[in-house]
Nucleic acid binder design. Structure first.
Lengths: 137, 137
DNA sequence: CTAAATGCAAACGGTTTGCAATGCT
DNA sequence: AGCATTGCAAACCGTTTGCATTTAG
């Protein structure tokens, strides 16, 4: 398993290290959209001397290499998402939960971006999720 | 002109006020993706006693009513965008410029969101823009 | 041995907050 | 007057920074 992560990192031109593999592992097993603090708290058990700075360093590195992206949440803290296959996000304005969804197929790509190189795509919807719609107020 | 903004605010259930109209006016005339500070600096000339807190208050109000949304920039500061008609954003990873584009048409909407109410959609692309691609390094 | 990665603690700065002042009806 | 809006200044807290320490090859 750890070997897969190593290869994955190398594919993005990143030298493997303990923290880098652990963070990758975190995303792989949680499939959520965590904040830096959530990752920090989760890894603290295994890496007692871990510092937040190292989390931020690693997240920034991953961002710059396109391994992660940030979500346009209205939270104070930044939420990160792993850039695996292209998928969309729906944020419920009532309960705050973020849902993933598979993206609708496009009929064609935008003309304004002719000649642009696209590294990542993000779709972010906001609204009210079905569970919240059916809750009594 | 100011009357249009009043009506627009009321449509969103917001009582018009000087600052609210000015900020709306700013977005209407600039069509950019400004930070709170940029708006503050721009309005300071006309409203000398303006405070940043009022800018943040108003932006938060607009966000909560769906008049504005935030963009998933990697900047330290939050970038805001007016939620007019649905359009996408492309952020150049080299020069940082944010381009608008008209969204590609969808073949159908995602099944995972059946029964959800969608208030806003955001498409955010990242990559390298054509001008940067043609620049000499 | 050397360079990169990690940790620590302090500083930073965008944003938030509490409350006073002002404006509006 | 009474309530909402705005302004001010201080606090907050997520993030960044500089540098010391550790780790890996």
């Amino acid at each position: 398993m750890a070997n897969q992560f190593k290869e994955y990192l190398q594919k993005y031109g990143i030298k493997p290290s303990t923290i880098r593999i652990k963070i990758l592992d975190y995303f792989y097993h949680h499939r959520t959209h965590p904040t830096a603090e959530e990752i920090y708290q989760a890894l603290l058990a295994e890496l007692p001397t871990l510092s937040r700075a190292s989390i931020y360093n690693t997240l920034d590195l991953f961002l710059s290499r396109g391994l992660l992206k940030t979500l346009p949440t209205e939270d104070r803290e930044t939420h990160y998402d792993m850039n695996l296959d292209f998928h969309g996000h729906f944020e419920c304005e009532k309960c705050g939960k973020i849902y993933d969804f598979s993206p609708p197929a496009f009929e064609h790509s935008p003309q304004e971006l002719q000649g642009f190189v696209i590294h990542s795509k993000e779709m972010y919807y906001r609204g009210i999720c079905a569970p919240c719609l059916h809750k009594k107020p």
